[in-house]
Amino acid sequence: MHTLAQLQSGKLAGIQRLNLSADLTSLPVEIFNLADSLEILDLSNNRLRSLPKELSQFKKLKIIFASNNQFVELPEVLGQCESLEMVGFKANQIARISERALPPTLRWLTLTDNKLEALPDTIGQCRQLQKLLLAGNRLQQLPIGLSRCEKLELLRISANQITHCPEHVLELPNLAWFAFAGNPFSECKAPQATVPEISSSHLTLHEVLGQGASGVISKATWNSPQHQFPNEVAVKIFKGEVTSDGYPQDELRACLKVGSHPNLVKSLAQVNEPDCRALIMKLIPPAYKNLGLPPSFASCTRDIFPENFSLTTRQINKMIEQMTSVFEHLHAQQVCHGDLYAHNTLFDQDANILFGDFGAASMYHMLTVAQQEKIKAIEHRALGHFIEDLSGICAN
C-alpha cells in the first residue's frame, strides 16, 4: 500500500504498480507523473465516482482495480486505454456500461456485486476475453454478442435475475468454469436433508482453520457428547452475503446434494438458523496440503504451482483417477462444481486427494436434458485442464 504523501513527494516516480487507498474522491494530479511507467493501478477502497479522460495517457496500463468505491457506471475512459487487459470494479453501484467503456484488449472483467441490469452487446468485440465475473447483479439476460467471445473460459453469473438458460453461452467452445446458481432459471429452494440439522449452541468454536469468499472455517468441539460425530469437527459459517461465486445458501444446498464420496470433504451436519447458516464437516487430516495455487494475473484462468514442485507419473495417474471419479459422482447428482481446480484439491504423500469448496457449485436438474449435457461437457473441459496442468509438473 502506498501513501498520498509518497505520491505527492515524487518518491514513487517510475513505479509500475500503485496501490492507493486514501479516501479519495478524485485522482490526485501527481498520479499523471506515472503515465509512462504504470502498469497496475489499484484504487480500491476509496470514494471515487468517476475517472478523468486523461487516464488514456497511461499507455502501459494493463490492470486497474477500483473495488469498493461509488461508481454508478463503468468509466468510458477505460475503453480508450490501449493496453488495458484486466478491469475489476467489484462492490460499487454500477448500473450501466456504455458500449465505449470496454477496451478491446480486455481479458478479465470483474463486476461482482453491483446493480447491472444489462451488458452491452458490444462485449462481443472483446475477442480476448477469458474471465468474466458478474455474480450479484440484476441481469435478466446475457447479450447474444457474448457468443462471439470464443476464448471465454470462466463465467460467473450466479445471483442475478436471469429468467431463461442462456443457450448461446453453453455453446462457447472454451468455457470450462461456469457458475449460474441463484437465478430464476436455475432456482432450487428445496432444503437438502442428506445430513441432520443441529443447533449452533451444541458447538464451541476454536481456532480458525481457513476462510474464503463465502465463509470462515474453524475447528470446533461439542458442548456435550455426540456419539454419531467425531469429538473434533470443522465448521464453516457462511457469511450470508453475495460473493464472487454467488449466494452462500446455494453453496450449502449443492454441497449437501452431492452426498458422500471418498474423495470429497465429508459433510456431517448443518445449521440452518435465521442468524447462522453453517456446515459441519469432518476434520481434514494434517497430512493433507494444497495441490495447487490459484491463477495469477498472467495465467488468468489456469492454476499455478509452487516453484520446483513436481509429481511422479504414478502420483499423477492416481490423482486423475480419483478426480475423474469425483467428476462422475457430482454429475450423477446433477451438480456442476464450477471451480474444478488443483487449488481446491488437497493431497497427501500417498497421492490421495480430497476435493471441496462448493462456492461456485450449481444444481442443474431443473434444466432440459440437452442443457444438462452441455453443462456436463463444460465441466469436462475443466477436468481436462486439471489433467493437463498436472501433466505439466510431471517429474518423470
Rank of each mutant, 00 (worst) to 15 (best):
H337R: 08
L132S: 03
I284Y: 05
N68C: 04
T301E: 09
I123E: 01
P191G: 09
G182N: 13
A220D: 01
P306R: 07
R138T: 02
L172G: 04
S391Q: 08
R47D: 13
D348I: 01
I217E: 03
N344F: 03
N69G: 07
F180H: 10
Q57V: 10
I63T: 09
D348C: 02
I97L: 02
K60I: 08
P103W: 02
A395R: 12
E99M: 12
S147M: 00
L175P: 03
D339R: 07
L146C: 04
F178T: 08
E197L: 14
N46G: 00
P262Y: 04
K376A: 15
R302I: 10
Q128L: 12
P103T: 08
H202M: 13
L142Q: 03
D389E: 11
L129G: 15
Q249A: 15
H337E: 09
L24R: 00
L252H: 04
M281Y: 00
N308R: 14
P52L: 05
Q6P: 06
E167M: 07
G240F: 02
E232H: 03
E30R: 08
H164W: 10
L172V: 02
Q93H: 14
Q211H: 09
P294H: 00
G14I: 08
C336S: 12
E76S: 12
A351E: 10
P286L: 10
S310N: 12
G124Q: 03
K115G: 09
K90T: 12
K11S: 15
N231M: 15
